[in-house]
């Protein structure tokens, strides 16, 4: 047997490293977790606090306005259906988790993507890291999230962010790199400062691609819902999880279908945003 004499103790190393992190950076993790808690609390407060018909109306109108009549009607009917099967509150918990995770992913991912587009070194470092982040089975993230942040919704958001942020970084980077070279050159030739170049030319032109990244981030977040429920994120993921544990096929499908409805609504809205941005932008 190979393993008898050749064994790299990678697992124990990571254990040790995480242990060191937990002990020494407790304060840092606390404040990260506090901040995310605040944002999540606010989003959840709005979604769960408002009467269900109001949320339904606002989301449907939004879908109608950005994506058109079909998606608008679908959003209305879909949300009504979720309320009808008694999962409204759970759905709002999940929606809050997804929106918060997406927001955090954008806040971290877009600036990182911008930096990566400017620095070849950062790009070279980031690329394999992002590959690993995305291909690693998502369950694995639960363990450090659990150790560093404990159990509950906030660790759920954090594990989701780690899994869902890569497209935001990647597509921001790509979008900026895709801006035609001669257009960038023209801006410089007319005396644009680096920030005028970024905000006046590169970001507006990269926006459709960045929005496509946001769209992917949202869908990846939704795909983490059930997994995040394993560390207590609750919501629709919790419904599905309980159903698995108790082998309740009906409940499982109710939860699953509600997740799919949320996914479709969010997808249509963000895709339409990405498309519309292809037009014009002024500042």
């Amino acid at each position: 047997m190979v393993n008898a004499w050749f064994r790299i103790p990678l697992g124990p190393w990571i254990d040790a490293a995480t242990g060191v992190l937990v002990v020494n950076l407790r304060g840092v993790f606390r404040s990260i977790s506090d901040w995310i808690g605040v944002v999540l609390g606010a989003v959840e407060g709005v979604l769960r606090g408002a009467p269900f018909w109001l949320v339904l109306l606002v989301v449907s109108l939004l879908a109608w306005k950005v994506a058109g009549r079909g998606p608008g009607l679908f959003a209305g009917a879909g949300l009504l259906f979720i309320a009808g099967i008694g999962l409204w509150d759970r759905a709002m918990i999940t929606l809050a988790l997804v929106l918060t995770a997406t927001l955090v992913s954008m806040i971290l991912g877009i600036p990182l993507g911008i930096l990566a587009a400017r620095s070849r070194t950062l790009d070279a470092v980031l690329r394999p890291v992002l590959d690993v982040m995305q291909t690693m089975p998502s369950f694995v993230y639960l363990i450090p999230a659990l150790m560093l942040f404990g159990i509950g919704r906030v660790p759920g958001v954090i594990a989701t962010v780690v899994f869902a942020m890569p497209p935001a970084i990647r597509l921001t980077n790509l979008g900026i790199r895709q801006v035609p070279r001669d257009v960038v050159e023209a801006a410089r030739a007319f005396g644009a400062t680096p920030s005028q170049l970024l905000f006046g030319v590169q970001l507006p032109l990269a926006l459709p691609t960045i929005m496509a990244g946001v769209n992917q981030t949202i869908l990846l977040s939704l795909s983490m819902v059930v997994i995040a429920a394993m560390i207590g994120a609750g919501g629709l993921g919790g419904v599905v999880l309980t159903a698995i544990q108790r082998v309740q096929i009906g409940t499982g499908f109710e939860g699953g279908i509600a997740i799919v409805i949320l996914a479709i609504v969010l997808d249509r809205i963000t895709q339409a945003l990405a498309r519309n941005r292809r037009g014009r932008n002024d500042s």
Binding site: D182, V183, F190, G191
Partner: peptide, 20 residues
């Protein structure tokens, strides 16, 4: 930058207009 803004400007082969 001041020179480029006020004293010299450029016209490009492939136009290089701002598409947005």
């Amino acid at each position: 930058r001041e020179i480029r803004r006020r004293r010299m400007s450029m016209v490009f082969q492939r136009f290089a207009l701002f598409p947005h």
